Amino acid sequence: MDIARRSLLAMAAFAGGAAMSTRTSAQSAVAPADPTETLRLWPGRAPGGEGVSVTGVVTERSTDPAFHDRFAQYTTDPLMTVFRPERPNGSALLLIPGGGYRWSVVDKEGFDVARVFAASGTTCFVLRYRLPGDGWAAGADAPLQDPQRAIRLIRSRSAEFDLDPKRIAILGASAGGHLAGLASARTDAVYADIDAADHASFRPDLSILMYPVATMADPFVHAGSRDYLLGSSPSPERIAAYSLERMAWRGAAPVFLVHAIDDASVPVENSLQLLSTLKAHQVRAEAHLFQEGGHGFGVRLIQGRPAEAWPDLVRTWAKRLDFAL
């Protein structure tokens, strides 16, 4: 009995120690360090800022030291955070996180996703862009000025980053997917050239749109994104002008769409309607619809579920297009 009792006590102590070790390990986990390399988009003030008086702020929502969940508001000096891979494969990826045009998230669809693609050799640039409600002269086109300028900067400095200037991809999520879609579809520059970098093309060579806010029209619009981009009562003409599925995509780069069917924030019809438009305009496109995943899953929120495969699906698709990601 004594031996049995001692054995049970020892087992309990071991189990308690293992649990303590697990808790200690979880508690000691810290979020990976941010890259220190950033690129300002504009040599001076961003265009059209004469009436802008806001002050930029970045807010942390996470209470878990293992990961960040930040969002940026009132950005006046847009920038790119650079993730340089150990072995560059010659491709670049500009990431545009979501935020409903109210703010721009930093980690979930930015830094977290950039680390995944940088690990396979892609040089990643996470964009912190301006928002339409902050008083910029260009209004709804102010956010688009930033990815157009960003792609031109990346392309004009491709030698510096060991990049092929013909292999610059864009990845946008949610409202960032709408902005990436505008950057992919529109052929008009929305700001005046300011230096030699603006002689380069601003259109991407590949587009990845994750659960994109594609339409500005009812019944499938994400109303918050429309309100912050176009105001509370936009005209039918303005709605049409900013709805991706109503744009002339012919001649655009290939597009990859990712969406969850159970997305309750941005209905999957946003991607389905856009896919029909891409097909009609003979744009090479591929779409992956997952039964579950909700909205805004990025890479961290879908671990262990089928949608976790989306980065590998993107890489396989891009490889068929002779584009390493």
Results as ranks from 00 to 15, higher is better:
residue 2 D to S: 10
residue 2 D to C: 07
residue 4 A to D: 10
residue 5 R to K: 12
residue 10 A to K: 12
residue 13 A to W: 09
residue 17 G to Q: 08
residue 17 G to P: 09
residue 18 A to M: 14
residue 20 M to Y: 14
residue 28 S to W: 11
residue 28 S to K: 14
residue 28 S to M: 15
residue 29 A to I: 12
residue 30 V to Q: 08
residue 36 T to P: 04
residue 37 E to I: 03
residue 38 T to W: 09
residue 40 R to L: 13
residue 40 R to C: 12
residue 42 W to T: 03
residue 46 A to T: 13
residue 49 G to F: 03
residue 51 G to A: 12
residue 52 V to G: 07
residue 54 V to D: 10
residue 56 G to K: 00
residue 62 S to K: 03
residue 63 T to V: 15
residue 63 T to P: 01
residue 68 H to S: 09
residue 70 R to K: 10
residue 72 A to T: 10
residue 75 T to R: 05
residue 86 E to R: 15
residue 86 E to Y: 05
residue 87 R to C: 11
residue 90 G to V: 06
residue 91 S to L: 01
residue 94 L to T: 02
residue 95 L to W: 00
residue 96 I to C: 09
residue 99 G to C: 08
residue 99 G to T: 08
residue 100 G to K: 04
residue 102 R to Q: 15
residue 104 S to G: 12
residue 104 S to N: 11
residue 105 V to M: 08
residue 105 V to L: 11
residue 108 K to L: 08
residue 112 D to C: 13
residue 117 F to A: 04
residue 117 F to E: 11
residue 119 A to V: 06
residue 120 S to R: 15
residue 121 G to M: 07
residue 121 G to L: 02
residue 123 T to Q: 09
residue 123 T to F: 02
residue 134 D to R: 05
residue 134 D to L: 07
residue 134 D to Y: 01
residue 137 A to Y: 07
residue 137 A to C: 04
residue 137 A to F: 06
residue 139 G to F: 11
residue 142 A to Y: 02
residue 142 A to K: 00
residue 143 P to H: 05
residue 144 L to A: 04
residue 148 Q to Y: 03
residue 148 Q to R: 00
residue 153 L to H: 00
residue 154 I to K: 07
residue 155 R to M: 13
residue 157 R to L: 02
residue 159 A to G: 09
residue 159 A to C: 08
residue 159 A to E: 15
residue 163 L to F: 07
residue 167 R to D: 04
residue 168 I to V: 15
residue 171 L to F: 03
residue 172 G to S: 07
residue 173 A to F: 14
residue 178 H to F: 04
residue 182 L to F: 08
residue 182 L to S: 06
residue 189 A to I: 13
residue 190 V to Q: 12
residue 192 A to C: 04
residue 198 D to G: 12
residue 199 H to N: 15
residue 199 H to P: 06
residue 199 H to C: 14
residue 202 F to C: 07
residue 202 F to Y: 11
residue 205 D to Q: 11
residue 206 L to M: 04
residue 206 L to N: 00
residue 215 T to C: 13
residue 216 M to Q: 12
residue 219 P to Q: 03
residue 221 V to D: 07
residue 224 G to P: 01
residue 227 D to S: 12
residue 227 D to C: 08
residue 228 Y to M: 08
residue 228 Y to I: 03
residue 229 L to C: 10
residue 230 L to R: 08
residue 230 L to S: 10
residue 231 G to W: 00
residue 235 S to D: 00
residue 237 E to W: 04
residue 244 L to E: 05
residue 244 L to V: 02
residue 258 V to F: 09
residue 259 H to T: 13
residue 265 S to H: 11
residue 265 S to F: 02
residue 266 V to A: 13
residue 266 V to M: 09
residue 267 P to M: 03
residue 268 V to N: 03
residue 268 V to W: 01
residue 269 E to K: 12
residue 270 N to Y: 01
residue 270 N to V: 06
residue 271 S to N: 07
residue 273 Q to E: 14
residue 274 L to N: 02
residue 275 L to A: 05
residue 276 S to D: 11
residue 277 T to Q: 09
residue 281 H to N: 09
residue 281 H to L: 00
residue 281 H to G: 00
residue 287 A to L: 12
residue 288 H to G: 09
residue 288 H to E: 11
residue 289 L to N: 01
residue 289 L to M: 14
residue 294 G to C: 08
residue 296 G to W: 00
residue 297 F to C: 05
residue 299 V to G: 03
residue 303 Q to P: 06
residue 306 P to K: 12
residue 312 D to E: 15
residue 315 R to Q: 12
residue 322 D to V: 11
residue 322 D to W: 05
residue 325 L to D: 07
